[in-house]
Amino acid sequence: MSAARYLGPEEMSRTIRRLGHEIIEANRGTGDLVLVGMLSRGYPLARRLAAAIREFEGVDVPVGSLDIGLYRDDVARRGAPPPVRPSDIPFPIDGKTVVLVDDVLFTGRSARAALDALLDFGRPARVRLCVLIDRGHRELPIRPDFVGKNIPTALVQRVRVRLSETDGEDAVYVYGEEAASA
């Protein structure tokens, strides 16, 4: 099976900074803005976005983490129970603009689960979706608001985001036949 590195550390850093700018631009500043990263890799991405926003605007945007294991639609159909971890959203989300952050957008099912999970914490004014990679193949009517990179993929391929916080390096790999080259 072939594998190709699609993104390295410098490009990833530039991409995250650009996403930070786009979020502030769309929100017209940092007012009522909170970031919620989906576990596991959306959360460190959300923290990096918050660090970038602090650098640009001098404001600390609250960052929370969200686990979607209990909200998946395939709990009984998978080979094993999805892992369940504590979410940590230590601030109210009522009336806020919540930017959900994930590493890869694929079928849209995780984003659907994240919306359900998020609404158990309160009633945000609006929810936006920010992903580092959009690889296509949506199975649900879900559309991202902020996209780092679009990677055209075949269904059989796999996209893997690795982050220094969780995996010891910053990189995006595409696995499988006809891996798209960078």
């Binding site: 686990d67 294991g69 209990l70 909200y71 709990v75 129970p81 892992p83 369940v84 971890r85 504590p86 979410s87 940590d88 158990d120 914490f121 309160g122």
Partner: peptide
Amino acid sequence: LQTARGMREVRSRPVSKVST
């Protein structure tokens, strides 16, 4: 134990129930 930590967090939420 790991799963129970996640469940304890669910119990602490405003809506402390899921439909899994």
